[in-house]
């Protein structure tokens, strides 16, 4: 357990050294630095998502806020960095919601296309049935032939 805590602290220290060497000692800087690491990871994950192209300017904005927050942390402007980190956190929630909505739209579009294709197939079958019915009438078939609306028909 102790080893794990030491290892985690070491990783955090390295991250903080990269982000905010000047504010390493401050608890706020430490907190913000951790939040920014999480945000960066989230943004990478979001950028790699299938529907990321639907995010457009909102994703760019989030990336800019991340850069601004890092700069602020490096310059020792902890409060500004904290404000940006908070905003970034909310923006990431928005991006996730947008991804979810985009995924739903993709699925809805696919379902609508499938329904349209099925309508074409129905039309083809109706045409075929009508042609057969015409042939049957022409042949003066005495046996009753199946109706279009019958669900199941005996062979």
């Amino acid at each position: 357990m102790r080893t794990r805590i030491v290892a985690t602290s070491a990783v955090l220290a390295i991250a903080l050294t990269a982000l905010a060497p000047a504010a390493l000692a401050g608890p706020r800087a430490r907190r913000v630095a951790s939040a920014l690491i999480r945000s960066e990871s989230s943004l990478q994950e979001i950028s790699a998502a299938e529907d990321a192209s639907a995010l457009g300017a909102e994703l760019t904005l989030a990336q800019r806020w991340l850069d601004d927050a890092r700069s602020a942390l490096r310059d020792g402007r902890d409060k500004r960095a904290e404000m940006l980190a908070q905003r970034l956190d909310a923006q990431i929630a928005l991006l996730r919601a947008m991804l979810s909505a985009a995924g739903a739209e993709t699925r809805a579009d696919a379902a609508e296309r499938a329904a349209l294709a099925l309508a074409d197939r129905i039309s083809e079958l109706e045409t075929r049935y009508d042609a057969l019915a015409l042939e049957a009438r022409g042949a003066q078939l005495t046996s009753a032939f199946p109706e279009k609306t019958e669900a199941t028909l005996a062979p």
């Binding site: 079958l125 049935y129 057969l132 049957a136 078939l141 199946p146 279009k148 028909l153």
Partner: peptide, 13 residues
């Protein structure tokens, strides 16, 4: 339903 009706019709014919 239509496939079934068409198949039955084809068979009949």
């Amino acid at each position: 339903r239509l496939t079934s009706a068409v198949a039955a019709m084809e068979q009949l014919l």
